[in-house]
Amino acid sequence: MAASVRTAFDGARASAVPSSRSLPQARVVAALARIEARKMLRHPAFLLTVAFGLLLLRGMVGVRAGEGGLMINLVWLVAGVAVGSLIGAVLTANVAALRARRDHLLELFGSLPSPAEARTAGVLAGVVVGLGGLAAVVGGLAWVGLERFDDTSTAADLFLAVQYPLSVLALGALGVAVARWIPSVLGGPLVVIAHVFTGIIWVLPWIATTDSDIARAWHLAYLLAVIAGFAGLAFLRDRRTVLRVLVVVGAFALAVVAAVQQTPPGGY
């Protein structure tokens, strides 16, 4: 408790610091992204959630034998990685975005020429390069693998392969936004728990399995809007500008419209 109070006090003090008003340099963000991506992929929270996902779906592996059985089993393994990495994206991105505050580095970082936005952008870019990159590779390999066999080609779905990395990015951006507005290590886990154990999971569709092309397009628009909305929300904490407010409001408005549009008549 005392530590969290001290952290909050440090944060309050550092927030009074006059920050660099320049926008972060792209090369600074790219260099930070490399480090953040590496740290996120190796972070125990990410590795544990992936292991948890595999454990969750291990019962499905080996259920089907014979021709194509191996591929189906691999698909379940991929699904395990996917479930784990979706949860892991929230937690790992949240921890990465909290790191400077948690480690009492706001004072030192406040004396450096790169503004706070550089670190926020670095973590978000790290989510794209690291977690999003891994999801794209895993989703792509699963799709290519399924496509190769007659027995499994009907299960191959490019739409799933595309929306999986986008969902990882959206959840990673959610983790960063939560860290910027709720400066506590409990923020990320609470978001995951609230998401899974309440009705929110049905309100915010992450993975959609619709056959309708229009619903698919709305879902992709929804994911992109959510990514932009959460990323904008994270940057809004660093500095409030009219443009950023408009981006956040516009992105979430689009997300609401897209969520409604893709919902089948009568609901899920």
Partner: peptide, 13 residues
């Protein structure tokens, strides 16, 4: 890694 991280924030790209 830590000093490298600070160096990046010092715009050493």
């Amino acid at each position: 890694e830590f000093v490298d991280y600070v160096a990046i924030l010092k715009e050493m790209t």
